[in-house]
Design a protein around this nucleic acid. Sequence first.
DNA 1: TCTCCGATTAGAC
DNA 2: CTAACGGTCTAATCGGAGA
Length: 423
Amino acid sequence: MHAPKRSIGLIDCNNFYASCERVFRPDLNHQPIIVLSNNDGCAVSRSNEAKALGIKMGVPLFKISDLVREHGVHVFSSNYPLYADMSNRVMAILREYSPVQEVYSIDECFLDLTGFHDIDQRARQIRDRVFRETSISVCIGIGASPTLSKLSNFVAKRHPRSQGVFNFNLLNNKQQESVLKNIPVEEIWGIGRQLTKALDVIGIQTALQLRTADISSMRKRFGIVMEKTVRELRGEACIELTESAPAKQQIITSRSFGQPVTEIEELQDALAHFISTSARKLRAQHSCAALLQVFIMTDRFREDQPQYCPSLALPLMTPTASSMTLQRYAVAALAAMFRPGYCYKKAGVILSEIFPETQFQGDMFAGAPDDPSLMATLDQINARFGKGTLKLSQDGSRRSWQMRQDRKSPEYTTNWAELPVCR
DNA sequence: TCTCCGATTAGAC
DNA sequence: CTAACGGTCTAATCGGAGA
């Protein structure tokens, strides 16, 4: 007896960040748009028109400035509060269509559609409803495994004839083969640049060739991940959907600076801010951390300048989630590492060795532990009155290090103060 | 020789 | 005018240290 064939759906928003920007700027429909990464560095989302101009994913803005000027490409800084809010709206709608949802990233989610009647029809309903209620268009791929659902999503995106929905399960073997033959291996989930190169060496270039490769020799040569990928291509679901995200094992906050930083005070201010962000995330998942790592670095692209990229790991005797305690350690680490005379371009903090907070509460022999109620109060006030209402004195008084965001749209859906006013 | 651990690699978005 | 290239996260694997 083998398991009945499953129908996994993968719903992916089209050009998500660019689409979010267009929801509130309908005048930009049919115009080329790009959205930039942090610090206005690289293009990370492009409307179809921008793709048609040849703007590649991840290209730095300065390399396409001519193209942008000549074709009047509309350029936006990333507006995460807006994208996160739009994402929540889309995901809430999708959740209504299956008892099993895994939100995989800000713009895509898996739905287990196994057992539903007329799945194609249901997928089209989902797509129409999401567009009607959010103005975001999505494509839906369906397959017997998560890998096949991703692959089907790729087909749905690439072929307009599919009208945004492609169900691999409806194909006979001959049709499956002709689809897989036309998909290059690098489009398969889990096959990145390095594996593509290594597979090419042994003559595997298409999804069909990978599906028919010998499992045990693929495993021996490439490891367990590859074995699962091959099995999934054959319709055997090896990757389980996980509905609730497990607590993070590691929390990183790091940023490139808007301009080079030379003074220790500015780095201190930035690190204090990064600690606040990380510690808040830590408390939100009811954890505490036993290891703090701090790093600062110069600009690796400036080969003409001296480079210095120190980092320091501080094991914490008592695990903590207190912003104050962590800030003190971070400042001490910085003092130990800092060397004057360098142009620093980036810094960050890493919290790891993360445990549930309860595990370390009420140890009366550990000396004076951090008082969690102080941080809880701070979090509550900020939740009620807005991010940054109350913060510690180290954090964020100096702004020279902040990232560039010259072209950010208003936070239309989450901030009254940024709503454009009609007059 | 086996096991554990930190560092490195690869991938996703 | 110039200079300008992102941020988080996980899992697997590797290689050395210590049992």
